[in-house]
């Protein structure tokens, strides 16, 4: 079973600090990490490889430093890594990004499964995964919380919905986006880290994947940012301090008519 995992390097935002003067994010010293949702895709690929054998490849588009994320994925147990890095890719929106990644995957064909995290924690669009499967014209299942069974030409999966879940049988090759309920990602081993450190990461540019220059980067992106602004903060209100009993009394008085 050959699996391709798509990942993105994102800034670690769980400890975000906001510059109070400009009200913007302080990016200095913010670590770059693998998009947390993608770590579940990596783990699932490693588990499938452990069960069924086959080759696993991790792929990422980004600046040269995204190589670090790929090595971390290899440390967790993936075999090979491809970095799509080219200044011509800069400014790609989700349409262009999913096109670029799908071009690279064409080059890695054949494969049985593509795994992605449900969305990236920086953009939160959840569009690139479905975009890739559409470019490749393969079926997809989003929000997968369990892979129940994998056969020669199909997978039986559970898809999370707002109300519960659905059980779906999907023909392979297919693309699945996974949610955190699917597994608990492992911490890489020392030997895995050493192997990943020494492993080769392939670097592909636009021409290496035969990507059409009109469909990548800024030119290939239908959407365009026209304005960036800091929202006017909602005004803070009344602050209570002091004795618990006084605070509670005042608060209950203020809220009781709303309940």
């Amino acid at each position: 079973m050959d699996i391709i995992v798509c990942i993105k390097q994102v800034p670690e935002t769980t400890q975000v600090r906001i510059n109070p003067a400009t009200n913007t994010l302080i990016r200095e010293g913010v670590k770059a990490i693998i998009n947390p949702f993608d770590t579940y895709a990596i783990e699932e690929a490693v588990r499938l490889k452990e069960r069924f054998g086959g080759k696993t490849t991790v792929i990422s588009m980004g600046p040269p430093q995204a190589e670090e994320a790929l090595r971390e994925a290899m440390a967790m147990g993936l075999d090979e890594a491809v970095l799509l890095t080219d200044r011509a890719f800069a400014g790609s929106d989700t349409l262009a990004t999913s096109y670029i990644v799908s071009c690279a995957i064409e080059k890695l064909t054949p494969f049985d499964l593509i795994l992605c995290g449900k969305q990236a924690s920086d953009g939160d669009t959840a569009q690139v995964g479905p975009g890739i499967s559409t470019h490749l014209d393969i079926p997809q299942v989003t929000y997968v919380k369990k892979i129940r069974e994998v056969g020669n030409s199909y997978a039986l999966v559970e898809r999370m919905t707002e109300e519960g879940y659905e059980i779906l049988k999907v023909a392979l090759p297919a693309l699945l986006t996974v949610v955190k309920e699917i597994n608990e990602p492992r911490i890489p081993s020392l030997r895995g880290m050493m192997r990943a450190k020494r492993a080769q990461v392939l670097c592909w540019k636009a021409q290496d994947i035969s990507a059409d220059s009109g469909r990548i980067g800024l030119d290939g992106s239908p959407t365009q940012v026209v304005k960036i602004f800091t929202p006017p903060p909602r005004k803070g209100g009344q602050i209570f301090e002091g004795e618990t009993s006084d605070i509670v009394e005042k608060l209950v008085e203020l809220l009781k008519d709303q309940i």
Binding site: V16, T24, L25, T223, Q224, K227, I228, T230
Partner: peptide
Amino acid sequence: GGNIMATIIT
């Protein structure tokens, strides 16, 4: 991912 809003057009 920050306290920034973007207006986007197509």
